[in-house]
Amino acid sequence: VAVPLPLSARLLDELGLARATPASLMARWADAADDTESLGGRARAVLGAGPRGPVTADLVADGPHLLVEGPPGSGRTELLRAVVASLAAAERPDRLGMVLIDGRDGVGTAAGVGEGLRSCTDIPHVTTHLTANDPVRMREFAQSLSAELKRRSELVGLTDFAHWHTGHEVSGRMVAQRGSGGRGAGDGDLEAPPSSTLRLRPGAARQHTEAAPPLPRLVVVVDDLDALVSPALGSPGRPAAGSVMRALEAVAREGERLGVHLVVASGTGGRAAETEPARRATLRVTLEAPSGGRGTSAAERGAEGEPAPG
C-alpha cells in the first residue's frame, strides 16, 4: 500500500527493529547466513523511507559502488552513518568488513557536530577509521588497501568473488543453535562490554574463525571525496592525498570482481565528479540542501514542512 512520504525516517523503524539489541541483531545475522543467494555476504544498505516501505540499495546486486552527492548542509554524513549502520545490521562481522575515511582533516576533533564517521567506530564490522590529517597513516592505509586488493586477486585468480565462494561458502552460525541447551538466541556466544560494541567471547570467536569464509566482503566508506581530490592548501594530509586516491581508484576499477565496494560522498560537480569512484558508481543518491539554509533547526524545518537533511 502506497503512503505519503514522511518528513523524517528513523533507521530502526526502517530496519523493523524496536531496539538494536544483541539478540535482535544476532537473529538478523542468522537469517543472512541462510541466504544462499548472497555468496560471501550481504551488503544491503537502507537509504530511507519510500512510499511502499524502506528504500534499500544492494551493493552486490545493484552496485558495486554507491555515490552520494549533495551540497554542504544536505546531510551527506548523516546518510553515510545510516548506510554503515544498516550494512552492519544486515550481515555479521566475519562476512562483512568496513573501512571508514573522513576526507576532511578537521573532523574528529569535537564530539557531536563535526565528528564525521567517528561515531560509527563502535560497530564491530569497522576495522579502520582514517582521518585525512596524518600523511604517514594515510600512506600506510593506501599501501594496506592496495595490498588487500592484490591478496584478493591472487585468491580468486581468473574467476571472481562470487564464483570463488561457491566452493568455499560455509553455512556456519554466529549464534548457538536454537533450542540447544535451553539457551535463547542471544545467550552464550556474545557479550556486550561497556562500550556497547558487540564482541564474541574467546571460545566462540575461535570456533567461528575456523568456520568463517576467509574472504569477507569489504566496504570502503569515504566522506567528502572532494577533500581528497582537491585538498586545501596547508592541509596536513595534502602530501598523501594522492596515494589514497590512487588506492580508491583501484577499488573502483577492480572491486566488483574482488568483493570490495565503495560508498562515497561528494559535493555536486567539481573535480570529484571526474574521478573513477564517481564514474563507476552505478548507484547514485542526490541530496538537496534545505531552502532555510544550514542554520535552520530541524524543528523549524519540520514546522515548515521540509525534510531534515540526510
Rank of each mutant, 00 (worst) to 15 (best):
A227C: 14
G182S: 00
G237S: 07
A308L: 11
M98R: 04
T109P: 00
D31K: 09
S196H: 14
R95V: 00
A132R: 08
L17R: 03
M174A: 15
G50P: 05
A273K: 02
D187H: 02
L117F: 01
A89L: 12
P239T: 05
P202E: 10
L5T: 03
D187E: 14
G97H: 12
S196T: 14
S24R: 06
T282G: 08
L79K: 05
R92S: 11
R28A: 04
T166L: 13
L258D: 01
E78V: 05
S146K: 04
R199D: 07
D94T: 12
R104A: 12
P6L: 04
A142V: 02
V107T: 15
G203D: 08
P213G: 13
H208M: 12
A227N: 13
A205R: 10
A192E: 13
G108A: 13
G182E: 01
F161Q: 06
V46M: 07
M26K: 06
L87Q: 10
A176F: 05
S195Y: 06
M174V: 09
R28K: 03
V83E: 02
D224R: 13
A192M: 15
R152H: 10
P309E: 09
G267N: 08
R178E: 09
A250N: 03
L59S: 07
D94A: 15
G112E: 08
S146I: 03
D187P: 00
S8K: 09
G53T: 01
S8R: 09
